[in-house]
Every structure is written in C-alpha cells, then in structure tokens.
C-alpha cells in the first residue's frame, strides 16, 4: 500500500503577510486514482497545486513524490511529476512538435525516446494534425490539449492538472475525460475543476478546499468506482424507515436527510432504482423523486463553502 502512494503531502502550509494561511493540507495520491480538487474561486486550488509541483515552496510541511522529498531532492521528485498550470505554459512562437520535444528535453527525455513519446502523446491528445502548426495559430481547445500533452510527455507517475477542461467544447471535454481515465490506470492524478458534474463523473475521491482549509471526502473503501455516481437521493411521500431501506439487497448504506428524503449509497444505481421502485409500489412509499448523486456533491460543496443559514431564510 505504501509503495503505491505516489504523492504525499504532510501538513503543507503557506502563510501570507496579513495573516492569511493556506492549509494545513494533508493528502495522499495513490496509483490508479483520480482525485478531484474542488473549491470556489480564490480558495487556493492553484496555489495548492503549485506547491505540490514545486513551483511554490510551502512555508511548512513536507511533500513527497514517488518517495522523493520535494524540498530535499527536487530534481528526482520533479522527474516523476507532470503539471498543467491553470494557464497552459505555451511558447507561442514554437510549433506543437518543437514545443513538446523541448518539454521532453527539459524533463531529461532525449533522442529517439523523446520522438517515440512525442508520437504517443500526440495520438493520446489528438494532436497529430497540428504537429507542424505554430501554437499561436491554435484554437483554445488545441492549446489546452497541447498543455496536457506537455504534462505527460515524460511519462510521469503523478500528473497534476489545474482545470484541464476549461475552455473546451463538450466533445473535447469528453475526449479529455477519456484520456484522463486512460492515464489514471498506471498513474496518480490530481485535477482541479469548477464543474461538479465533471468531478463526479471522473474522480474516485473529492477534496473540497475552502478558505484555505481542505475538507476530505472519505472514499468508498476498496472501490475503484467513482463514489458519487453510485449515490441516489430519494424523496418519498410516505417514507419508510432507514432500516427498511437498509434491508434491500442493493443498498450499501442509507442516510436520512430530513423527514422525507434519504441518501442511498448503492453498489449499482440501476439496480437500486429498480429495487426501490418495486418495493415502493408494494409498500406504498410513493416515490416523489429519485435523482442521481450530483445533488449530494453539490450539497456537500454548498455546506462547506457557504455559511450556514437558518431554516426558512433561504430565498
């Protein structure tokens, strides 16, 4: 288990004059895992990522990448790391091929190996058609993909992507998601996003950052399936007890939220819906709403990022 922890941050903090403090941040990325970092604008997502990538030194705390301490042996640690900042670091006067080869050289990948990696990465990021095009002539979507290609050209074990799908159209977003899933099979990925749906669809674990504090959402243990896609919010007119719902074979865990609503964590959402609706018909629970988990993440996000409001005052 320890060998598979590719990135570890222990009590990482960055203090600013004026008393603002980011952290302490504790996080662990394991091989084969996609972790999402969520948070409102200005929460410190990009700063956190910059610290994990060594472009910004933390005031306190330690970061280890593939067992190399980022402060003590930065060169070795950074060899195992690919980073896409929120603004892709592109040289507009280079062609895509020149740029990616340059990035490969900067990461110590040379000659034939660099060219092999270039071909592979271009295929993965759908950049084959624009290899000879100047980056300044590329559309935003292509630039973003060039940025992602830059982060993986040296085949790093840890990939950190700061808003990888911003500025892309839905089709491109889907392509990037597929790419990210492919990458995650042998690597650890950390990505930040504004889009809750994206985090749900993609991530095995979600971290929510608010006002410099990291709130860790516990992962489904032992599961490699995204956690949030498997949770349902169900409202009944005539609600059953939690025990009754727990007794159903497809439900893992049932949480009561309010008088009429429950959250159902299930192995498979489809199975759970089928079983609950059948049971509801027989027992007369009268289902008013079944919705997939988006609501759950949204609710937790709101809980963490919005100050609590007294009941009845919400508009």
């Amino acid at each position: 288990m320890i060998a598979d922890t590719l990135l570890q941050a222990d009590a990482v903090e960055r203090c600013y004059p004026g008393g603002y403090r980011l952290g302490p941040i504790n996080l662990e990325l394991r091989r084969g895992e996609i972790v999402g970092l969520l948070g409102p604008n200005g929460a410190g997502k990009s700063t956190t990522m910059a610290m994990l990538c060594g472009t910004l030194a933390p005031t306190r705390g330690r970061i280890k990448i593939a067992d190399h301490d980022l402060a003590e042996s930065p060169i070795k640690a950074k060899r195992c790391l690919g980073y896409l900042p929120d603004n892709p670091p592109l040289y507009l006067d280079m062609t895509v091929d020149q740029y990616l080869l340059y990035c490969a050289r900067l990461h110590g990948v040379k000659g034939g190996q660099a060219r092999a990696q270039l071909a592979k990465v271009k295929a993965e990021c759908n950049l084959e058609a624009v290899g000879g095009t100047l980056i300044s002539h590329l559309s935003k979507g292509f630039r973003q993909r060039t940025g992602i290609a830059q982060a993986i050209i040296h085949d790093p074990q840890v990939v950190i992507l700061d808003e990888p799908t911003s500025a892309l159209d839905p089709l491109q977003i889907e392509q990037i998601h597929t790419l990210i899933r492919q990458l995650s099979t042998t690597r650890a990925l950390l990505l930040s996003t504004h889009i809750l749906n994206e985090a749900e669809a993609l991530c095995h674990r979600i971290l929510i950052l608010h006002k410099g504090q990291l709130h860790q959402e516990s992962p489904t243990r032992g599961s490699t399936q995204p956690q949030f896609g498997e949770t349902l919010l169900v409202r009944f007119n005539n609600p059953p007890t939690v025990a009754e719902l727990n007794a159903l074979s497809s439900t893992n865990r049932v949480e009561s939220i309010g008088a009429e609503s429950v959250l159902i964590h299930a192995k498979s959402a489809d199975q759970a819906i089928a079983e609950i609706s059948t049971a509801a018909l027989i027992q007369g629970w009268q289902i008013r709403e079944i919705s997939p988990a988006g609501r759950l993440l949204e609710r937790r996000f709101m809980e963490i990022t919005q100050p609590p409001t007294t009941p009845g005052t919400t508009a």
Binding site: G54, T55, K78, Y83, P89, L90, L106, G108, Q150
Partner: peptide, 14 residues
Amino acid sequence: RTGTIRLLLSAPIS
C-alpha cells in the same frame, strides 16, 4: 508574464 516560467520551475532543473 506569459506564465511559461511554471514550466521551467516544475521541470527537473535547478
């Protein structure tokens, strides 16, 4: 200015 410094700072170079 263009943010490309982050490429250099995150690369394994001193």
